[in-house]
Design a protein around this nucleic acid. Structure first.
Lengths: 100, 100
DNA sequence: GACCCAATATTGGTTAACCAATACTAATAT
DNA sequence: ATATTAGTATTGGTTAACCAATATTGGGTC
């Protein structure tokens, strides 16, 4: 843990976060990284974000369209289902945090 | 990932969850494990929960009182501060999920 | 077409969260 | 006081999420 007072390093949440953010709006890998930086304060490395995107694409949770030199990713119907399921799980665990 | 459709395995959230649950009410390690099972659906193993509790105790985030054969853990002022900080971080990342 | 840059991809290695199995401890019962 | 059992603790090993560094690709520009 980088910060000694930080109990919540978000490890394991990256693909969840990706699906969530893509449900707000489609975007490219580099935009994703910046969006995640806004939220977490730490920008994921290329070696982190691209394999994560590749894995989600292989699972048919996301697709992309080439747009210039970027790949604009968006959710597939399967990805939306997965996200819904994960959000349910998430909320079951943390239901009483949101109403703090 | 156990479930192929699960994007959110909560790895890395255990100590955060512990602080959160202890802020609701003090409880022992075994009770913690059951409470976590209720939320996550998976009960953490002894080899997971007790080292986590020991680490938080060493950081002075929690203390305990012996009560029968149990150790009833509760938050210290420092633990409350850490939790507050972590909840802020958490909400910064996931602020728009809670209002789904 | 040669060069440059942004975006994407890959490789190799590290770390830490977690589990399974086993050991210890303390209270209670017989 | 011995056995039992719930609770707590430990040990050793596995796995996967992540990073740092490097490589590749694809557009634009001169």
């Amino acid at each position: 843990m980088q910060n000694n007072d930080e109990t919540c390093d978000m490890r394991g949440f990256l693909s969840f976060l990706i699906l969530w953010i893509l449900s707000i709006r489609p975007m490219s890998g580099s935009e994703m990284a910046s969006e995640i930086e806004k939220r977490k304060g730490i920008k994921p490395n290329p070696g982190t974000i691209y394999p994560a995107l590749a894995e989600l694409a292989e699972k048919k949770a996301i697709t992309f369209k080439n747009q210039g030199k970027k790949k604009v990713y968006s959710l597939t119907p399967k990805g939306k289902e997965m996200l819904k399921h994960s959000v349910n799980h998430f909320c079951k665990i943390f239901y009483d945090i949101l109403s703090k």
